[in-house]
């Protein structure tokens, strides 16, 4: 565990849900071959996680994590690529990248630190803030309904869909482990309270429960459970693995066993065309 720590001082606020995510990620990473691991992060409070874990990392620009992670996986398919993004990042200006990564079923894992507020810019509304959210940019309350990101990922074709809660660390670690092991696009939305700007601990503690007796390979059942909570103020909030299916991945279909990072000079247009046609 310690070998994954870095000298960087952790600057998240005390009580931040990111600590739960950091600990779970470190736990799962410590079980893997860290030399073959790459973390990709976006812009926001979540992005600092790259500084706190001693593995290869790539700080990309706002919203672009899934696109960069896709490029890394295609560049060297032997790598295990885990993308981290915030809700403002992945569900806002980077939404198209998230949906296309799901559509392609590229073999990467996306972990979304979903605090439902822009924390780093100090408290504005995001695509998953509840309707009526009062933040600094919405003093009278947001007029918009939030996205249900699980449903978006489901419709776009993600082959592994899960939701976790940063304070349920055991569940979080076990879901992350399964997500990383899954071949194909894994999507994990992690509910993460922002202690300073949107403290949702009590709200989640009252509502969150773990999925049981749920068959993640049943598409109809999965859709029903995904729609059980729409990021509003009603009802209970299931966490766990909602959906899982096995499908050929984009990297397998495109690369056909080739590893571009190891290819030699004999690789040329002709052999590429031979493979593609």
């Amino acid at each position: 565990m310690n070998k994954l720590s870095t000298y960087a001082e952790i600057t998240w606020c005390p009580g931040c849900g990111n600590f739960g995510i950091l600990n779970a990620v470190k736990k799962v990473f410590s079980e893997l071959d860290t030399k073959k691991l790459v973390m990709v992060t976006g812009i926001g409070c979540h992005g600092k996680i790259a500084d706190y874990i001693n593995v290869n990392s790539f700080y990309t620009i706002h919203g672009r994590t899934p696109a960069t992670a896709t490029g890394i996986k295609l560049g060297n398919p032997e790598l295990t690529v885990v993308g981290f993004a915030g809700d403002g990042d992945a569900y806002g200006e980077g939404l198209e990248h998230l949906l296309f990564a799901a559509k392609r079923n590229i073999d990467i894992t996306m972990v979304i630190h979903n605090n439902r507020v822009y924390g780093l810019t100090t408290g504005q509304f995001t695509p998953t803030s509840p309707a009526g959210f009062k933040g600094k940019s919405t003093p009278r309350g947001s007029p918009e309904e939030p996205f249900n990101p699980l449903l978006l990922a489901f419709c776009a074709g993600a082959t592994f869909i899960a939701r976790c809660y940063s304070a349920k660390s055991k569940n979080l670690a076990s879901v992350l482990r399964e997500a990383i092991n899954h071949r194909g696009f894994s999507f994990v939305d992690v509910l993460q309270p922002c202690y300073t700007f949107f403290n949702t601990y009590d709200f989640y503690n009252e509502r969150v429960y773990e999925l049981e007796d749920h068959n993640p390979s049943d598409r109809e059942e999965a859709e029903k459970r995904i729609k059980e909570w729409n990021y509003d103020s009603d009802g209970r909030i299931p966490i766990g693995i909602f959906y899982r299916e096995s499908k050929p991945t984009f990297d397998e279909l495109v690369l056909k066993g080739l590893n571009p990072s190891k290819r030699e000079a004999r690789f040329n247009v002709k052999c590429f065309l031979d493979r593609m046609i």
Binding site: G92, E93, L120, T121, T122, Q124, K136, S137, T138, P139
Partner: peptide, 20 residues
């Protein structure tokens, strides 16, 4: 607008003017 440091306070203030 969309929040980005160090601009954010300008539009936050405008949001407040509109809300009030």
């Amino acid at each position: 607008a969309f929040p980005i440091t160090p601009q954010t306070h300008i539009v936050e203030k405008l949001a407040e003017f509109v809300a009030n």
